[in-house]
Amino acid sequence: MFWFYAERILGYWPVLLKGLGMTLGLSLLSLLIGAAIGFAFGIIRAGGNRWLSRALGLYIDLFRGTPFLVQVFIVFFILPAAGIELSAFAAGVVALSNLAACFIGEIVAAGLKAVPQGQREAALASGMTPAQQMRLVLMPQAVRIVTPSLVGQFVLLIKDSSVVSAIGLLDLTRSGWMIVQSVPQGLMVFGTVGLGYFIICYPLILLSRRLERRGQDALL
């Protein structure tokens, strides 16, 4: 019985593979865009302009404090009402990048604040511009501090990407929904889907743990 259904599920490998590809593509693209914006967010959040930092903090909390599914629906169903028409993929990328930027922004800001004040002073005293202080002295150290958390965040992002199946994107989760219509074995189908996510995420979890251990050594 088990092998019978297992064979049938695996017979849908093109769908599963397509879903996996979509999940990976969506996550990776959102990760890149989210990281680029997130680092900028982090610099502003840790920076000297208090009002700008607070305004951005409110924006970030807004997205950290609402369900991602709601955010996806807003981007996909409500923005078109305002005249911004997005494909399901574009809507997914927009929502996921935005969420990633918010989380990465707070992580990067925490990293920048963890760099000792003396580092900024040493850079300042040597005549560096604020941009040079950031690029040459502060950011490289902040990145070292937060890399394990960032990698951990990537894992969450990949898992959160499953939510976009709700707007019809054929990602790994949706490929499960499709297969389960012809193979009525929910446990096995979604077990396979879960395994797909785990195969992507597990190496990242291990990497994060290793970086954390190495980071502790480097701080000694």
């Binding site: 000792p116 003396g118 580092q119 002073e121 040493a122 300042l124 005293a125 040597s126 005549g127 511009t129 002295v137 490289p140 150290q141 070292r144």
Partner: peptide, 20 residues
């Protein structure tokens, strides 16, 4: 100020070397 700082070296109590 920035131009001046290039001409004035500063040595801190806690060294403040760049650890990376």
């Amino acid at each position: 100020l920035r131009a001046l700082r290039m001409e004035v070296g500063f040595v801190f109590q806690s060294f403040n070397l760049y650890p990376h």
